[in-house]
Structure formats: structure tokens, C-alpha cells
Amino acid sequence: MHDAPRPVPFRGGGFRPQRLRGVGVAVFVVLILLIEWGTRAGWISSLTLPRPSDVVATLVQLWKSGLFFQHVTPSLTRLAVGSAMGVLAGVAVGVMIGLFSLARAGLVPLVAALFPIPKIALLPLFVIWFGIDEGSKYALIALGTFTPTVVATFGAVDNVDRTLVRMGQSFGLRWWSIVRKIVLPGALPGILSGLRISLSIGIILLVAAEMLGAQYGIGAYILEAGSLYDLERLFAGVVILSSLGVLVSWLIAQLEKRLLIWRS
């Protein structure tokens, strides 16, 4: 009655993400071709979506006319200055919260209260405080990047292996040496991954910041296109903005590669 011996069935597959190159690009290409076809054939009306080739033409035009840099340069400056202020202050406050019980008790509730405020709602207030020009834009982006950086930083400081700190203490290292050589490098991975979120929020807030009193800037360009119902320019602006997001993400990945080489 015994059956012939048969191989044990394999049941261990799946649940393991694999690197598939080019699929992401293919999805983009297929989607864009589909929209191109739809807008040309007419089953997507010009009111619904712009023709991708027209968007490309708009981008080329933008580049040739020199307006590209006229819009991108102020936006990049705002993003750089605003998020530099927000991130530096955020790391400083986050480290303080991580190290001092008094700072933790005093500042964590404050940060928790600041975090959920839609920063856009504060823009009119910032205009009064910091002026309608660059000041209010920097302030908006700075505040927007500040809170997530604080939360990421003090979480990262909390997660620094305490045995490393004890080791430092057991060797009689000075307090500042422990912070500089053990706590900060140990918190760096957490701070950098917080930076991804902070800078994405910074890019989102760029559009909001340029709502008030900006003649040039990617956000102003998108808002203008939206109010003119100019879909080609609207999408051209969106393409620039999401390229900016990809670029920032890539830069952080490079930074991680260099600084976190010690991670397995």
C-alpha cells in the first residue's frame, strides 16, 4: 500500500521582497503612454488631463526661456534656508530632550502641541511677524521641518544603545565626549531617516509658503497655473516638484551611504 517516495513539497517561497530593476520605470512609461493615447484619441478630455507631450513641451519652453531657473532658484533657496534652520534647531532641541529630563518634561508637550498644527494656517501670522517677503517663507518651512526633526532626533537619542553610554562612563569619558562620540553618532541613523520626512514636508510647504506674496518659485508657478486652469503648466510644475523630491531623497541616500557605512 506504500506509495512511491516523492519529494517533499516546497512551501517556503514568497514574503521576500526582491529587487526588480526597471519595473518602476515601466509603470511610469505605460501610464504616460496611456494618457498620451487617451488625450489624443479623445477619451480623456482636455479638461481632465493635459497631454503628456504638451507638458514636456511646456517644460522645454520653460527651460529655453530661462524661466526655469527664475522659478527653481528662489524655491531651492527657500527650501535650503528654511529647512536648514528648522533641521538644525530641531536636532539641537531633540538632543536636549534626549539628554536632559528637564528639557524633556518642558519641551515634549510643546512639540506635541506644535506638531499637528497645519503650518499653512499660520502663514498669515508669519506674514505679520516676519514680513511678506522671504522671512515668512523661511519661517513656515523652518517650523514645518522643525517638529518632525525634533521627534525623530529625540527618538534616535533615546534609542542609542545605553550599554555604549555606560561603557563611556565606565572608562571615565567626559560628558561632552560621550555626547559627541557616542550619543550623536549613535543617533545619526535615526536623525537621517527623520531628515527624509522633514525635507519632504519642507517641499510640501514650499507650495504653501509661496501662496502669499511670491512672484517666482515652483509653488507660485503651480498656484498660478492652477488659478488659470492651465493644466500643462500645472503638471509641468508638479513634475519639477516631484523631481525635487526624488533629488532630495537621493541626496539623503548618498549621505547615508557615506556616513552610515558602519551599519551592517
Binding site: 544603545d161 561603557m167 565606565s170 562620540k181 549613535g186 558602519w262
Partner: peptide, 14 residues
């Protein structure tokens, strides 16, 4: 008085 720890306590970035 110098410790040697069970989990080595080496700084991974050094």
C-alpha cells in the same frame, strides 16, 4: 576600575 561587558559595547562606527 575598568569594565569588560558581555555585549562588547564597541562603537560600531569606529
Amino acid at each position: 576600575l575598568t569594565f569588560v561587558f558581555q555585549d562588547f559595547a564597541l562603537l560600531p562606527w569606529r
